[in-house]
């Protein structure tokens, strides 16, 4: 990596753990990343205040997911269950972190999940979390906590889905902006893993796209990466999600704050894609 370039500095990665498959993949990705960037990992488990309140309601019942049996809820039971989840999350974190010799810490917080997480994220350089948590609906591609994180933090966010291998080629959305160059920097760094980088060139016309391609090739000429370019016109923006799905990529890297693309478009894209995303800010 060229030291002169404006390096995104990530020293602490905060990973939200809730025991869901999504959060497990977020953890895995975060551990990998922490290993790569030599960063510290902070695991956070938030005891949902809503669940604790619910448990205190006199009529509260829980319908068991695997038996459909209704059981009376109480505070002790709920606390025990949350404690067990937290314990499991910590064990997972410890195991993975030790495997990758990454230094880590773990903390349990209590309160509204999104708020607690955002507050905790302030002290980290990157927030890693699952696209959805243990949500009722499976249709949602982006859970409420993730959405809050995308919309309300200024830190880079890594959104993960299960069963997506990180060794697939990294996909970068590039529109020539300063933010896009930042994203290119991160993407190129991460792409060293398998030596392949796919770039989607978001340009107004062919000429511009060629210029972008030329600029990227120039920038990365010392990197020994296999670069693949794909040209997108503004007309493609509606089909962007579809095009990206077809490209069979792994992690998608993009910038939503300092980009020529409107943030709303990017957020819609992030919502529509059932894929891991690294938002560089």
């Amino acid at each position: 990596m060229n030291e002169k370039r404006n390096r995104l500095i990530i020293q602490r990665i905060l990973v939200a753990l809730d025991g869901s498959p999504h959060s497990q993949s977020a953890l895995e990705a975060a551990v990998n990343l922490a290993g790569l960037l030599n960063a510290e990992l902070i695991g956070v488990f938030v005891e949902d205040i809503n669940l604790l309140r619910l448990a205190q309601l006199p009529f509260a019942h829980e319908i068991q997911a695997h038996t459909a049996v209704s059981e009376k809820l109480n505070m002790d039971r709920m606390k025990r269950q949350l404690r067990l989840q937290a314990q499991q999350a910590e064990e997972n974190l410890a195991q993975l972190a030790q495997q990758h010799t990454v230094s880590y810490s773990f903390r349990i917080m209590r309160g509204p999940v999104s708020a607690e997480l955002l507050a905790a994220a302030l002290e980290a350089d990157l927030l890693a979390l699952g696209r959805i948590s243990r949500s009722v609906s499976r249709k949602t591609r982006l859970g409420s906590t993730a959405r809050t994180a995308v919309n309300q933090t200024t830190h880079p966010v890594l959104l993960m889905s299960p069963n997506v291998a990180l060794d697939r080629p990294i996909l970068l959305v590039y529109d020539g902006s300063a933010g896009a160059n930042k994203a290119l920097d991160v993407a190129a760094y991460l792409a060293q893993g398998n030596g392949r980088l796919q770039v989607l060139l978001w340009a107004d016309n062919k000429q511009q796209a060629t210029d972008y391609q030329h600029a990227i090739t120039q920038t990365l000429q010392t990197e020994n990466l296999k670069l693949e370019f794909r040209y997108l016109t503004p007309a493609d923006s509606a089909n962007l999600a579809y095009i990206m799905k077809l490209s069979g990529m792994g992690l998608m890297v993009l910038n939503d704050t300092d980009s020529r693309l409107p943030a709303a478009t990017i957020h819609t894209l992030v919502e529509e894609l059932d894929h891991p995303v690294l938002l560089v800010r």
Partner: peptide, 12 residues
């Protein structure tokens, strides 16, 4: 609200 609990669902 329909809420996901650690082992199932509940209404609050």
């Amino acid at each position: 609200a329909l809420i996901r609990t650690p082992s199932g669902f509940a209404f609050a």
